[in-house]
């Protein structure tokens, strides 16, 4: 009986959140576009063969404009631009999702530790984070890449690590405000164990804000990863990463602007969708936050 009531309450809360979310039309559009992009990334191999269409070069078919056969035209090596953009979705989504997840887990661990222990531990951790954050983010990422070397894996490590200080701050301030609430005091007075307080009372209340921040960070990560690949520090050609594709085509852009347009607009649409989704989630999860 007790369990049912709990379930009902959970159901209605989720329904509540969904109700508020679907009223925000731009956010719904963002969600739909993201679902589409994720499906494209998942079924990329069905849409176009990676080896023969996205990587193999066809010198006789180079620099064609948009046609029925090549929807977005072909690039300087005769590769189908549409096929490359479809496969590029995998890179961008991986960067966005994986880096924000790693950053989130690391940041939560550090931020929550600081907030729980308070006092000297908190002070030491947060001062250190302050110092790291006084180094502009992209510099930290570049320094890490310079140390680790170029390439996909190292870029993911570098970008994830650079996310951790920011997330630590957010999680810490979230946990701190919750820990000061009266219901936590009440739980402590009832003799609830620390672990139960953390997992049952603090985390569920902090999770909304944390999810919102993670979603908001995804667009920045996608843009940042594309930028790193554009300057040649990230994914290396011939891999069809969107930023790297723009860089490869700058030589032809005077005559064939579509070569830089399509990969770029793919980044914009993906980043914009995640921004819209994040906005919608922020409003839906915490109606008080609205101005």
């Amino acid at each position: 009986m007790k369990k049912r009531i709990a379930e009902d309450r959970n159901d209605s809360q989720l329904a509540d959140i969904w109700y508020r979310f679907q009223k925000n039309k731009p956010a719904v559009v963002g969600l739909i576009v993201i679902t589409l992009i994720i499906s494209v990334a998942l079924f990329a191999d069905v849409i176009a063969n990676y080896e023969t269409e996205a990587i193999a070069q066809y010198p006789t078919e180079r620099l064609q404009t948009m046609s029925g056969e090549h929807w977005f035209g072909t690039d300087g090596y005769g590769r189908d631009l549409f096929a490359r953009i479809v496969h590029g979705a995998r890179y961008s989504l991986t960067f966005g999702l994986v880096c924000s997840l790693i950053g989130l887990v690391g940041g939560s661990a550090i931020g929550a530790t600081a907030a729980f222990f308070g006092g000297r531990v908190d002070n030491a951790i947060m001062r250190f984070i302050d110092v790291i954050m006084s180094i502009p983010g992209i510099l930290l990422t570049l320094a890490l890449i310079a140390a680790l070397g170029f390439g996909l894996k190292n870029m993911i490590i570098a970008m994830s690590v650079s996310m951790i200080p920011g997330f630590s701050r957010i999680v810490r301030s979230q946990v701190l405000t919750i820990v000061r609430q009266e219901y936590i005091e009440a739980a402590k007075a009832c003799g609830v164990s620390n672990a139960r307080i953390i997992f049952v009372h603090v985390l569920p209340n902090a999770i909304g804000m944390i999810i919102v921040n993670a979603t908001m960070s995804i667009s920045g990560l996608i843009i940042g990863a594309a930028g790193l690949s554009f300057i040649g520090m990230g994914v290396q050609p011939p891999a069809p990463e969107w930023g790297a594709m723009v860089a490869e085509s700058t030589n032809y852009m005077r005559m064939y602007p579509h070569l830089v347009f399509f990969p770029g607009i793919s980044i914009v649409i993906t980043a914009l969708s995640f921004n819209l989704l994040g906005d919608g989630l922020a409003d839906a999860l915490d109606p008080r936050m609205k101005e």
Binding site: S219, I223, A226, V246, M253, G264, V268, A271
Partner: peptide
């Protein structure tokens, strides 16, 4: 909102174009 979603290198390239 749109400007926040445009990578700076691509914005530069588009302006240059």
């Amino acid at each position: 909102l749109v400007l926040a979603s445009i990578p700076n290198f691509w914005l530069g390239i588009m302006l240059m174009l």
